[in-house]
Computed example of a mutant assay.
Amino acid sequence: MTTTDCEGRNSHRFDTAPTKIISSNNAGADLLARLGAGQQVSGVGWARGLDALAPDVRDKLTSAQRLSDGNIDKEKLLSSGAQVFLATFASMDMMGTPEPTAAEFQAANLTKVFIKSSACAKFLPGPRTDLDQVYSDISDLAALTGHRQTGDEMVTSMKKTIESARGKIRSGSRTPTVFHFDVAASKDTLTTPGNRQIANAIYTLAGTTPLGGRIDGAFGKFTYEDLVAADPDWITIAVRRTGDDTSVRTAQDAAITSLEADPRTRGLKAVREKRYIRTTSEDMTLAGPANAEQVAAIVDSVSTSR
Rank of each mutant, 00 (worst) to 15 (best):
I22T: 02
F114S: 07
D73R: 02
A33L: 05
T111A: 05
W46Y: 09
V228S: 12
Q106S: 03
L31P: 01
Q65H: 09
Q197H: 15
I138H: 03
Y224S: 12
Y135D: 07
F181T: 10
I162V: 15
P127Q: 14
T280S: 00
F14S: 08
T208D: 04
A255P: 06
G28E: 08
N71L: 05
D30S: 13
A82N: 01
A296R: 06
P125S: 09
D5S: 03
D188E: 10
L190E: 11
P263V: 01
A201Y: 04
D51R: 10
A17R: 00
A229Y: 11
T280I: 05
G172Q: 13
K168H: 15
T204L: 04
A47H: 07
F105W: 06
T161V: 12
P193T: 07
T177K: 00
R48D: 13
N71H: 12
W46A: 05
D59G: 09
T19N: 06
Q197N: 14
A185K: 13
I277W: 06
G213S: 08
H180K: 14
W46L: 02
L77R: 06
N71I: 06
V295W: 08
E153F: 03
A121N: 06
R278T: 04
T62H: 08
I21D: 00
G146Q: 06
T257F: 10
E153R: 15
A143I: 06
V183C: 07
I72F: 09
T161C: 08
L35H: 03
L144A: 00
L124M: 11
S171H: 15
D30K: 11
M1V: 13
K221G: 07
G217P: 07
M1W: 13
T280M: 01
W46S: 04
R264I: 08
I115T: 04
R272L: 13
L53K: 04
T257L: 11
Q133D: 06
P18Y: 02
P232N: 06
P232R: 05
E282T: 07
K116V: 04
I215Q: 05
V57H: 02
D253P: 10
C120F: 11
D140E: 12
G49C: 03
G194P: 00
K187P: 02
A54K: 15
T208C: 05
T191S: 08
Q65K: 15
A290I: 09
P100M: 06
D233Q: 14
A206K: 09
T161R: 08
R264E: 05
G194Y: 05
L50R: 12
Y203R: 11
T2V: 15
D5E: 00
M158N: 02
K76C: 10
A102V: 00
F105V: 04
Y203S: 11
S42L: 08
R170C: 14
D130R: 10
P127H: 05
R34I: 04
Y276W: 05
F105L: 00
T97M: 08
